[in-house]
């Protein structure tokens, strides 16, 4: 099969083919996804829209300028996996999760609904944005 192909296709073209496929692969890896929000933004929409609010957008970049990872992922107790933290607004108001800082003492309090609940309607929960590979399950 290979020898037959080789006799019909000029040599430079044969060299071009794997190159083009590789270029395509690199292209696929490097092109940004349609949703090009800031890298590390988390959409939290397990309950928000069902309760009639906009989805919550959590910007990692904003928070890591001001706090180290351990503050939220050790002291506040957020698990390092989008979707595994069951955040209720009642918890936040009582000072758990986001409410540990967003309490009008360290940061603005939970009365500022619109600052967190600022997402477009219909967004799915999860970490969104940035040139990640998305993992083999998503290719």
């Amino acid at each position: 099969m290979t020898s037959r192909l080789r006799s019909h296709i000029p040599l430079p073209a044969l060299g071009l083919f794997p190159g083009a496929v590789m270029m395509l692969g690199v292209f696929m890896l490097l092109t940004p996804f349609p949703s090009s929000a800031e890298y590390g933004d988390v959409v939290i929409n397990k309950r928000a829209e069902q309760a009639g609010m906009r989805p919550v957008i959590f910007p990692h970049w904003f928070h890591r300028i001001r706090f180290r990872c351990r503050v939220c992922h050790t002291e506040v107790g957020f698990e390092i996996r989008a979707g595994s933290n069951n955040i209720l607004m009642a918890d936040i108001i009582e000072g758990r999760f986001c409410g540990k800082c967003h309490n009008n003492k360290i940061a603005w309090g939970p009365q500022n609904c619109q600052l967190c609940h600022s997402g477009l309607p219909g967004l799915e929960s999860g970490v969104i944005g940035g040139p990640t590979t998305g993992g083999p399950s998503k290719w």
Partner: peptide, 9 residues
């Protein structure tokens, strides 16, 4: 593409 530009926030 993530934030609602029409929202108050």
């Amino acid at each position: 593409g993530l934030h609602d530009p029409t929202g108050p926030g």
